[in-house]
Amino acid sequence: MEDGGEKARLRCTACGWTHWNNPTPVLAAVIEYEGHILLARNAAWPGRRFALITGFMEAGETPKDGIAREIKEETNLDARELNLIGVYEFFRMNQVIIAFHARCEGEVRLSPELAEHKLFKYDDVMCWPAGTGYALAEWLRSRGHEPKFMEMR
């Protein structure tokens, strides 16, 4: 036991190093582009599932700066407006999602890690029942659209 708390932690008996296994913060963006929601498909994913733009913060940057950088790196778009949607747990990946709404401009040019993108009408987008999907659903509700959720198998 570490720190006398209830949670058991892995600790090296030789050096005393503790593996905390804390969740990793992940940034996500609901990108509003040309009156639509832009979703992208990761080149490593099988099938044709599209998702929010996500990424990790770098040392010394704020969440807002980090998601603006990720949007630029992955889509070449410039975030003209960024607003926090909320913070969501994603237990399966041991992550905490920090989600933003981003109004973006520019010409889409995807990074090599993304295979393709699609623009969805607000009423046509399907939310997934997990971290970033809940962020997208909350943003849709805030705009007067009732989100639809896909079934996960």
Rank of each mutant, 00 (worst) to 15 (best):
V108H: 05
Y33E: 08
E73D: 14
K64Y: 00
E70F: 13
V26N: 12
F90M: 12
A44K: 11
E34L: 15
V108K: 13
T54Q: 09
E89P: 14
I97H: 10
L52A: 11
L82D: 07
N22A: 12
G86I: 13
I53Y: 06
P46E: 11
A68W: 09
D78A: 15
L27G: 02
A28Q: 13
W45S: 09
F91G: 13
I97S: 07
E81A: 13
G60T: 03
A43F: 04
K64P: 00
K72N: 11
E89T: 14
V26S: 00
T62Q: 02
Y88G: 03
M57A: 04
V96Q: 15
N94T: 01
A51F: 13
A68F: 03
G47V: 14
Q95E: 06
E107Q: 08
M57T: 06
N21G: 04
T62P: 06
N22G: 00
N76T: 13
I71P: 02
I71D: 01
L27P: 01
I31F: 03
F100C: 00
F56Q: 12
N83F: 05
L84F: 05
L27F: 07
I37M: 12
T24G: 12
D78K: 10
R48P: 05
G86M: 12
P25K: 06
E61P: 04
L38K: 10
F100Y: 12
F50P: 00
L84P: 04
E105P: 03
N42Y: 10
A29Q: 11
M93T: 07
G86E: 02
A79L: 03
E73H: 05
R103A: 13
E74Y: 07
N22I: 07
D65K: 03
G86P: 07
V108I: 15
I98V: 12
E34Y: 10
E61S: 03
T75W: 08
E105M: 09
E89R: 15
H101Q: 14
Y33N: 05
L38N: 07
